[in-house]
Design a protein around this nucleic acid. Sequence first.
DNA 1: GCACGGTTTAACCAAACGGTTAAATAAAAC
DNA 2: GTTTTATTTAACCGTTTGGTTAAACCGTGC
Lengths: 203, 203
Amino acid sequence: MTELDITTEAQIIQAARKVFLVKGFEGARMQEIADEAGINKALLHYYFRSKEKLFQSIFQEAFQRFIPSLYDVMLSEKTLPEKLDLIIDRYQELLFENPYLPQFILQEVNRNPECLKTMFQKFGVQPSTFISFLEKEMTKEGITHITPQHLLVNILSLNIFPFAAKPILSIILFNNNKDEYLEFMKERKEYIKLFIHNALFKS
Amino acid sequence: MTELDITTEAQIIQAARKVFLVKGFEGARMQEIADEAGINKALLHYYFRSKEKLFQSIFQEAFQRFIPSLYDVMLSEKTLPEKLDLIIDRYQELLFENPYLPQFILQEVNRNPECLKTMFQKFGVQPSTFISFLEKEMTKEGITHITPQHLLVNILSLNIFPFAAKPILSIILFNNNKDEYLEFMKERKEYIKLFIHNALFKS
DNA sequence: GCACGGTTTAACCAAACGGTTAAATAAAAC
DNA sequence: GTTTTATTTAACCGTTTGGTTAAACCGTGC
């Protein structure tokens, strides 16, 4: 019973994830999620009382996945360039496993910005400590021509944007050839590392 | 009469732009657009037969605005670093005037990727020529550690992403303080220039 | 005054959607 | 074997939404 229970609930979650991530809250239909899960609408409401509730669980899961644990990297006994490379490695791995996450998060946070504060509080994420870690490392390395805030935004931009803009870039760069775009994204990791490294340490 | 005619249609367009850009196609309501334009729903359908038609005109306008004319910059008698700075200047100006454009385009292209090809064909945009221009300039400068495709994506990422991710970054960096975020975005232009410059020319 | 086109009003329609309900059924738990 | 729980079926409800219609209103040009 418990096992089947979990299976069905997991099926629903999986289906909801698939539909919500691609279509967003407004675009998603409960019927479609039920179909995708291979069940009927009534059972959906039997497990999750409302669309809002189901969405919340999906969004929370997505948000958690989107915030990687970077503190251990920051606290490790490595040099700043090594740490930055590790952060990029982790982020690229995360994004390759969840390519729809960026656009989903952007869309839903844009729709309801208040939920962000709740999430940050809920999971105790403290970006300011990351910033101050970064700042300390930067002064140690004598990097003064950029602030830690801008560096962080640069790292996030270079990593995340190409996933959110996949359809546009795919057509701009490769005339919609999926294989070429995948190849481009796979090799991109090293280009990002090199780009950031040069921007920071060769001046 | 003709003048009033234009005014009303312009009012509708303006209202539709405001609503569609913030809420997207699925989130937008015809009633809300009518209210925003100070008219009634019937008159909306009198001018634009359907939501789809009205949206198309807004999206087309937005898309056109989002594709800046960069060919003159590329063809000008300037050095590559100067050209890159000019491109960044133009993009930042464009984005400051239309901060909602990035998320809107991303969202709608994600919803209906096919419309992209139509747009590119309709306006004769040829990104491949831009790439080859860039490639020529890069070989001239002896830049071999990055491909023009990755450089283009880097430029787009660094410029566009912070606008699409405004709510997230605003809370991450400045605890939702709007003034601080605005100041951050204003000073960002020069940081982007410097970052790209260092990444390209100091290795 | 008359005609005409922009505009309003208000009622209305059909479809879609989130959600509910009740009865029947199957399966697992005890 | 009985009870409980999961699941299906299918009808149904209330609301929202895009869209239509018809009648009246109003300003301008002729």
